[in-house]
Design a protein around this nucleic acid. Structure first.
Lengths: 163, 163
DNA sequence: AACGGACAAACTATATCGCTTTTGTCCCTA
DNA sequence: TAGGGACAAAAGCGATATAGTTTGTCCGTT
């Protein structure tokens, strides 16, 4: 039984209130995967990830209601997923949640695909004329890790996303 | 005067209607940077980029009104920008426009930065325990380059933009 | 061809209202 | 300490009505 994390531990680690943890459990947003013999909650590692993801989305301005809808939409869209909040990569603010999966980015709710390319656009216009675009790197490698630079080059960088 | 592109050329290259080009000019969404002696419009190369960006945003489901607001917000947020539509990297669908600039992603309208990263999250939780997450790649390498083009994919595309 | 004007249809945005969800506080039981 | 219940403030949502934009079509001028 030393397996999971207690409610207290969970909420301290994740940074949410007692009330939230409880409500989320009762309403099945995130439930503890295990129980003590006495029936008390025990959150697994994966549960913590789910909790943290929820917390993050909330901090990003996504309402709990919206999170629920996104989960529903996601499980419908990607049936293989069992627990979206802990199995998928999300990115969000306010009322949009983007999902990164299988090399694509799309909106969970609508399933509408997002992103991409700039290069094409440039070429398209260039084709009309012999005009030369300034530099070569259209997509500045947008690396989460080393997102140091870019700040130097003023203005524009095209770009893309991430991983 | 052989400088820029005529209205007709511009709208053919960009793929918008006569009416749109005119309206956008009159309402200052995108104006020709130059004029013929006779006072007729001459769109520069950069103008075409701006036009194309606008077109792309529209195709991605962003309304013209929203584009205007985003431009306003962007120039307020990044005063160095003169013409957001042709100087910045955008990505969008429906009602959200994401701006990539200086290694960050944020919503133009609100200025709110986008959240992301799951990896970090994983580490955070892992730190609490020695537990090992299943795989390595959370964000499947999302590489623009190798994501073939999308032009072939049928008609309406979600999409995104840039520049 | 480029542009403008008038008019109408299609589309977007904004504000509002009633309803539901979420969270906090306080208290109780095991 | 974990968890439940009751209650209320706060936040969020969906539908709707109203006002404002954008675009197409038709016509006229330069």
């Amino acid at each position: 039984m030393a397996e999971g994390f207690s409610s207290k531990q969970a909420r301290q680690i994740v940074g949410i209130t007692d009330r939230q943890l409880g409500y989320w459990r009762r309403t099945e947003l995130v439930c503890p995967s295990e129980r003590t013999d006495g029936g008390h909650a025990r959150y697994t590692f994966q549960d913590l990830i789910a909790l943290t993801t929820a917390k993050r989305l909330i901090d990003a301005g996504v309402s709990v209601q919206r999170i629920r809808k996104n989960i529903a939409a996601l499980t419908a869209l990607l049936p293989t997923l069992d627990r979206p909040l802990s199995e998928v990569s999300l990115m969000a603010t306010g009322d949009v949640v983007l999902v990164f999966h299988g090399g694509m980015a799309f909106e969970a709710l609508s399933g509408q695909e997002w992103i991409f390319p700039v290069a094409e656009l440039q070429r398209q216009v260039e084709a009309v004329r012999g005009d030369a675009p300034e530099q070569g790197e259209l997509f500045a490698g947008w690396d989460m890790q080393q997102q140091a630079d870019t700040t130097d080059r003023d203005g524009d960088d095209p770009l893309a996303v991430a991983s």
